[in-house]
Simulated assay, not measured.
Amino acid sequence: MNHDIQFLKELQNELKTQDNDCQASPRYWTVGDYEWVEVREENAERYSVYLPYIAEAYVLDDYLEGLKEDSELSKEALTELQEIEDDYDDVIEWIRKYIDEGAELIPERKVHIIQPDTMFLTKAEAKSHIKLNKHHYTSEAHTYAMTSWRAPKVERLLKILEMFDWSSITISK
């Protein structure tokens, strides 16, 4: 029991002294990150190319760079690629001609997401989670504060954790 009370005292201190990231109470932390999602062409920040014959998609610029460096393509095909690589319509036609006739361009945009199944009472715990689980996230993963809006039980619990006088408890042996 003493260990539990000591834990609650330390948690109380952390809750009272941690940065609130300009987020209203009751607050908790999650993992924020970014992912690329398919969008309409006019909203694209980049393109990926989908190659059905291998059922894989690649960031277009990286894919083209890899072809130039490691390609077994003819000089003629590589020269043709050099001439057209700034025109996406021509590039996809080139890929269909030399690589995969079913290839498709996918317009994409980077969006902020809140990773599912992440909820932490303290920012330090969220940071630790990201560090220990970085293989599940991008290099842009970060703590993200949120408010438990209109959640009276959560609000009451966090107030108790922050305000209760733990020294008033006597433990009988």
Rank of each mutant, 00 (worst) to 15 (best):
P116C: 10
L67Q: 05
N133E: 02
D70R: 15
H3Y: 14
L60W: 01
V91W: 05
E101Q: 13
T147Q: 10
R46L: 09
N133R: 09
S172L: 12
E10T: 11
A126N: 04
K173G: 11
F120G: 03
Q12C: 02
D117Q: 12
E140Y: 13
F120C: 07
R150F: 11
S74Q: 05
K110A: 03
Y88R: 09
E10P: 04
N2E: 14
A124W: 05
V154N: 08
A145W: 04
K16P: 01
L158V: 03
E42G: 07
D61S: 13
K127E: 13
G32R: 00
E69T: 14
I160F: 13
L157S: 11
D61C: 03
D61N: 11
R40V: 10
Q12S: 06
Y34R: 09
E45C: 01
H136P: 07
Y88N: 05
T17H: 12
E108W: 02
D86H: 14
K9L: 07
M163R: 12
I95L: 01
S148V: 10
Q18F: 02
L8S: 01
I113W: 12
Y63V: 04
P152T: 04
D89A: 14
T170P: 04
K123M: 07
V37G: 02
G32F: 00
A103V: 00
I171S: 10
Y98P: 00
A124E: 09
V49T: 12
E65H: 13
E41L: 06
A141E: 00
L60C: 06
L8Q: 00
E35M: 06
S48K: 08
S148G: 13
Y88L: 08
L121Q: 09
H136T: 07
E14N: 07
E76Y: 12
V154R: 06
L81E: 02
F120I: 05
N43E: 09
T79P: 02
E125L: 06
W94H: 02
D87W: 11
